[in-house]
């Protein structure tokens, strides 16, 4: 697993989270560019599951495998759950839910990196 990739994922998650917060502040609905950004992020997280498992299989490091795979899978779940929960909220708080999901995703990827580098 490449730390640079994880840092990029964290940066994009935080960017999407910040964007969502701006939408809350200016009282707007979720817009298409944000949906595309979050879709791309989710796709990258799915690729990370495959990449992470391959890296785990070939690495010489002593990584806590169960914990690592647990974080890989949880990181994939949070965004779709957040989008589903935000979808039926037609106020400014819809993007607020997305902000929570994005920040949580960033935290999960950070924890994933911690487990890998421990």
């Amino acid at each position: 697993m490449l730390p640079a990739v994880a840092y990029a994922l964290i940066a994009v998650s935080l960017l999407a989270g910040l964007w969502s917060l701006v939408l809350v502040a200016v009282n707007r609905q979720v817009n298409d560019p944000l949906v595309w950004l979050m879709s791309a992020l989710e796709l990258a997280l799915l690729v990370q599951v495959v990449g992470g498992c391959v890296a785990l299989a070939v690495t010489e490091r002593d990584v806590a495998a169960g914990l690592f795979v647990g974080y890989l899978l949880t990181a994939v779940l949070v965004l779709p759950l957040g989008v589903a929960w935000a979808a039926s909220e037609k106020s400014r708080w819809g993007p607020g839910v997305l902000a929570v999901a994005c920040v949580a995703t960033a935290a999960l990827v950070q924890r994933l990196l911690d487990v890998w580098q421990a």
Binding site: G70, E89, W93, G96, V97, A99
Partner: peptide
């Protein structure tokens, strides 16, 4: 579960998942 409550439930959900796992 409406308005700001939507966000509150989301935060609780994150903690339910992470504490559970």
């Amino acid at each position: 579960n409406q308005g700001p409550g939507r966000v509150l439930v989301a935060v609780y959900g994150v903690f339910a998942i992470s504490a559970g796992a």
